[in-house]
Computed example of a mutant assay.
Amino acid sequence: MTTNTTIGSANSVLQNLISTVNGTTGSSSSASANSSSNSTSASSLQSTFLQLLVTQLQNQDPTNPMDSSQMTSQLAEINTVSGISQLNTTLTSLASQLTAQQQTQSASLIGATVLAPGNAVSVSSGAATPIGVTLTGAATNVQINVMNSGGQIVNTINLGKQAAGTVPVEWTPVDASGNTLPNGVYTISATATINGSSATPATLTGATIAGVVPQSSGSPNVVLSNGNTVNLSSVAAIL
């Protein structure tokens, strides 16, 4: 009778271990009676496994005892599971710290002028907001077309050959004849030749960071003075 009770206990522990690994639970009564065994934490899994191992040792066949190498292997596997769980906890904590640090650093950028994706350029009193392009590869014949509100090209900025990456552009807002452009909002577009093929590089426009908006993902968005809101990772350059 005693042996049968012990074996029944082993089966119960085994079922708890299987439930723990699979992330499932039994009936409501079993769950309340064995809440610690059904926990998905590594420590609970390790405790359940050790209970099962002790029960197996108590009920092993004396003529065919458990292989010590198998027991060592099983213990090593449980330690691996525990180590992975601890590593996940550490990485989660590190990610939280990095997110908080990134948000703090982004807040320090308020008031800075940056280049971000966009194509609208403001001209006022002979001055214009900064512009630029993003090249996916080394390019030749890089050009930026400046268009007025009517869609007419008023000037073309020839940048020639440029390396891959972000290319800030300094320019004086004049038309093709050298006349100062009237105040207003203009649109820019870019063309280039990359790896022998025509390409349309992404254009960048300058703006001041007016605020920072934390996101649920942890990566902050920045509010720009031109009314746009972009992710901090989209900021191509800080001027």
Rank of each mutant, 00 (worst) to 15 (best):
M1C: 15
N4V: 09
T5R: 12
T6A: 09
S9H: 14
A10Y: 04
S12N: 12
L14N: 09
L14P: 10
Q15C: 04
L17N: 03
V21I: 14
T25Y: 08
T25R: 08
G26R: 04
S27E: 02
A31K: 13
S32D: 14
A33N: 11
S39L: 06
T40N: 07
S41F: 02
S43I: 06
S44L: 07
S44C: 09
S44P: 09
L50G: 10
L53N: 15
V54L: 08
Q56W: 10
D61C: 03
P62M: 02
M66V: 14
S68K: 12
S69D: 11
Q70G: 15
M71A: 13
S73T: 10
Q74H: 13
Q74A: 15
N79C: 03
T80Q: 12
V81R: 15
L87G: 11
T92M: 13
A95L: 11
Q97D: 09
L109S: 11
I110D: 06
I110P: 10
A112C: 05
T113M: 15
L115R: 01
L115V: 04
S122W: 07
S122L: 12
V123S: 06
I131V: 01
I131Y: 00
G132V: 01
V133I: 03
T136G: 14
G137F: 04
G137D: 08
A138M: 14
A139V: 05
N141H: 04
V142Y: 04
I144C: 01
I144E: 00
N148T: 03
S149E: 06
G150D: 14
G151P: 07
G151M: 06
V154W: 01
L159N: 02
Q162F: 04
A163F: 03
G165S: 05
G165L: 02
G165I: 03
T166A: 03
P168N: 00
V169T: 00
E170V: 09
W171I: 04
V174T: 10
A176F: 10
A176W: 09
G178M: 05
T180K: 07
G184H: 06
T187E: 08
A192M: 00
T193N: 05
I194V: 07
N195Y: 07
T205G: 03
T208S: 14
V213M: 08
S217H: 04
G218K: 03
P220G: 01
L224K: 00
N228C: 02
V230R: 02
V230D: 02
V230Q: 01
S233C: 01
S234A: 12
V235N: 06
I238E: 11
L239K: 11
